[in-house]
């Protein structure tokens, strides 16, 4: 059986909030290393890969592989009943038809308990090849969100260009064009403000802003975001959480002349 206790419900609330507009029905695949989810959006352009490691829970118990088939809209309805600071416990049997969720207020004067009906979801998993990306950019997640939102006002697509001089986000729209160039920032006092660019070769790729703006809903999970880019392969946008857990988004590029 699965028993997983989170000190603060907000972790799961934020994760589900960040992905529920991209994917609807998906399996939480549980085993002794944690809870994983992999799902593509309906258009097969974006993929969500979530890993909540056992270390992010206390305690975490799962002795077998258990697939918890969830509708994220339904899960959101239940999670809305949890306060951010509540202690959240997930429980499920080995072949579950429901997921038990309890929310305890930190001073333990209130315990809420819900059972959510599960779905049988036959989901195919994609093999994601290990890639040595040509460019890895680490930046404040709020900055990335601002860039994507600002450019989306002008255009459907953004071209991300990483070179030795910095990283440039450029768009071309009906009303004109715009670009934002970022250079390396080293803020010793406040490392969250750092902009780091690791480059093995220059890259330039175009992506749909609609999806990038959607990924930015994960901004609350982490103060920093990492973009991994190589020419002609999907972009990886990664939000790292405590305990080695992460939320990753993959986005297929736009290619052509």
């Amino acid at each position: 059986m699965l028993e997983a206790r989170l000190e603060q419900a907000q972790l799961l609330k934020k994760v589900v909030d960040a992905i529920k507009d991209l994917v609807q029905d998906c399996n939480f695949d549980c085993n002794d290393s944690g809870i994983a989810l992999q799902a593509m959006d309906n258009s097969h352009v974006a993929l969500v890969s979530m890993m909540l490691k056992a270390e992010s829970f206390n305690p975490f118990r799962c002795d077998r592989n258990i697939a918890i088939g969830l509708n994220l809209v339904s899960l959101t309805k239940v999670l809305r009943a949890a306060q951010n600071e509540d202690i959240l416990t997930l429980k499920a049997e080995d072949a579950p038809d429901s997921l038990n969720l309890t929310f305890e207020s930190s001073d333990k004067d209130r315990i809420s308990e819900y059972d959510l009906k599960l779905m049988d979801i036959d989901q195919e998993h994609l093999g994601i090849p290990d890639t040595d990306y040509s460019a890895t950019i680490s930046m404040p997640s709020a900055e990335f969100k601002r860039i994507c939102t600002d450019l989306m006002a002008m255009s459907e697509s953004v071209t991300i260009e990483a070179g030795k001089d910095g990283i440039k986000f450029a768009c071309n729209g009906d009303i004109g064009n715009g670009s934002i160039t970022l250079r390396t920032v080293q803020d010793v006092e406040n490392k969250e403000n750092n902009i780091e660019i690791a480059l093995t070769e220059p890259v330039s790729l175009t992506f749909s802003l609609k999806y990038l703006v959607n990924f930015c809903k994960a901004q609350n999970l982490s103060k920093t975001v990492k973009l991994h880019i190589s020419n002609e392969v999907p972009l990886l946008v990664e939000y790292a959480m405590e305990g080695g857990s992460y939320l990753r988004f993959y986005l297929a590029p736009k290619i052509g002349d």
């Binding site: 974006a46 195919e124 392969v233 052509g256």
Partner: peptide, 14 residues
């Protein structure tokens, strides 16, 4: 114009 690619042309089912 550039054409949106599908993820399935990069990632294959396990």
């Amino acid at each position: 114009t550039k054409k949106q690619q599908s993820l399935t042309s990069f990632f294959t089912p396990k």
